[in-house]
């Protein structure tokens, strides 16, 4: 008989993570002026995707949800052993990308508050954020289409 581990929060946590990353990626790409140009905003009910202030607000909310989930996971891992998370990055690569996204995103948030950051640094941050988001999305897509590994009992799998 197989030995089972457990995933805290169950399906709800997995769904929340999916929603947060999905909306963060979608609204993030919507920060480039492409949704209007490439007709997405012309689809019924999608006009809002061309409004940069709406997509920016969605990006903030999705990022907040993601940060909340990740903080919860880290704190729970510090208190508990044996959790086999069914969501989130499974490799150092995924965690590195997520880390870069959080750091560059946090700096961009400070800039949006009107705090001065040197313009060359902002450009580095912008491209880091964009590049890691694209890498994160492609990694996620690869993981989604790849055959699922057998349940790993040691929690955070390689």
């Amino acid at each position: 008989m197989s030995v089972m581990s457990y995933s805290p929060g169950g399906r709800a946590a997995r769904w929340l993570y999916g929603i947060a990353t999905g909306f963060a990626l979608f609204s993030g790409f919507g920060q480039m002026p492409i949704f209007k140009r490439y007709y997405l905003a012309d689809l019924p009910g999608m006009a809002w995707t061309a409004n940069f202030f709406i997509t920016s607000d969605i990006h903030y909310l999705a990022a907040a949800l993601l940060l909340g989930l990740l903080a919860w996971r880290l704190a729970l891992d510090a208190r508990t052993t044996g959790a086999a998370w069914s969501w989130g990055p499974r490799s150092w690569w995924g965690w590195t990308l997520l880390g870069l996204l959080v750091i560059s995103g946090a700096a961009k948030v400070l800039r949006n508050l009107g705090i001065y950051l040197p313009p060359p640094l902002i450009m580095v941050l912008d491209f880091t954020h964009l590049g890691s988001a694209m890498a994160f999305m492609f990694t996620g897509l690869v993981v989604l289409v790849k055959p699922k590994p057998k349940p790993n009992l040691r929690g955070l799998a390689g």
Binding site: L67, G68, L70, A71, W72, R73, L74, R79
Partner: peptide, 8 residues
């Protein structure tokens, strides 16, 4: 994240 940490 503060709420997440507290919950965790």
């Amino acid at each position: 994240p503060l709420a997440g940490l507290a919950a965790g």
